[in-house]
Design a protein around this nucleic acid. Structure first.
Lengths: 221, 221
DNA sequence: GTCAATATTTTTGTATACAATACGGCTTGT
DNA sequence: ACAAGCCGTATTGTATACAAAAATATTGAC
């Protein structure tokens, strides 16, 4: 028996968001309001609110009087987003280098230690989690709540692609050692070094992803 | 006679946005849906859509089942936003240093020349316009459309405070000379220097913060 | 048979009606 | 008199009804 649970509009929004991020829809596909309303067993009103939220966060494009269409970022846009992610995280690292607490430094060390163990066990799933924790500690230690928020926002948006990219061979171990360099720079309070290391650490993900896309394209032909 | 012109929801949104940015509402004031619907002579539906857009861009806070409340950023948050703005613009400059076209370099020089004339004439209003043009050229020359968009978004949000910032910095002339240093760095393709110069140019630092707090307090009275 | 103009249908956008929840005043008990 | 609980009212959230516009189908002319 299919029990239908009514959801609030913000729940619908994040659910739709997840569906788009997980590529449940094709690029350019139109999201039909009545269809979605039917699926979530609510009226069109909360669906429209949800869709507008998605439109503003850039996941879908809303063309007036035409409808909303899912908008999967292309390879170029993804690269651009990773580049910005690198800059934002570099900014976090730069500020954190001066502002980070001893407590947080210890936490970073612990997280890295756990990462190490996880790498040894080749447990990619756990690695994602620990990796995310590592980065988020640094966002927070930037001491800039607005920056933290903006960085988290983009991080969330890139999340599905990040996983894809970490799967590449040898990347886990390299990523680990980069983490350690970053912690060292933060410990020394070397803002420029921390920023530079972080920028490269993140930018590499974009490049790797680019390679991945390229190889997929070649494979598709 | 007061002719009432019906507006579309997105027009309402940007109109409300302007009203909030221009501080037509007090901080914490509740925006009444029916009242706004009445003022714009539309139903609550487009008003709600507009308010949700504002909520997502952070201009108002939406508390479920309570309503939306205007949320004027305090001194600390404002400082944080300027810090992020500095980082984003620094990123633009960093990338532009490598990617900028000769054509754009020339345009920057021209804009600076016009700035110079405007400074001589002490025409602050014109200066804002030329200053904005200068910065936007660099956003574009980052060659990263996503970065350009994000930077423009924050720039727009900080716009009303920008003149405040320029006044804080004391001197139009100082700002001018910083522009010239930036152009030099860009011409030399010195990414690090360009980024550093831009960051300092935009950010509100040190004792300037106290001035900011003071002037905000004065403005509030 | 094809192209164009028009009618029909679908779909978005807005208004209104209804439901659910939070706030404020009122009553009542101690 | 004061506090706590309850009821009425105001306000948000959702559903439905309606209007406007775009997409599609149909019909007619060449």
């Amino acid at each position: 028996m299919n029990v239908v649970i009514k959801k609030r509009s913000d729940e619908i929004a994040s659910e739709l968001e997840n569906m788009i991020l997980e590529a449940k829809f094709n690029d350019g596909e139109r999201l039909d309001e009545v269809q979605l309303a039917d699926r979530f067993s609510v009226s069109r009103t909360p669906i429209r609110e949800a869709l507008q939220r998605l439109a503003q966060s850039g996941l879908v494009e809303q063309i007036p009087r035409r409808g909303v269409f899912v908008r999967q970022p292309g390879a170029i846009e993804l690269l651009e987003m990773f580049e910005v992610m690198g800059e934002l995280e570099a900014a976090c690292a730069r500020l954190a280098a001066v502002r980070i607490t001893d407590e947080a430094l210890e936490e970073l060390a612990h997280t890295n230690a756990r990462c190490e163990a996880v790498v040894a066990a080749q447990d990619a799933e756990r690695y994602y989690a620990e990796n995310e924790r590592f980065h988020r500690i640094i966002y927070k230690q930037s001491g800039n709540g607005f920056l933290e928020g903006e960085t988290m926002r983009l991080q969330r948006r890139l999340k599905p692609f990040r996983r894809l990219q970490l799967r590449l061979r040898g990347r886990l171990r390299q990523s680990m050692s980069e983490h350690e360099s970053i912690v060292t720079a933060l410990t020394n309070g070397d803002a420029d070094a921390a920023a530079e290391l972080m920028r490269n650490h993140v930018a590499v993900q974009g490049e790797k992803f680019h390679h991945l896309v390229a190889s997929l394209k070649v494979a598709a032909e």
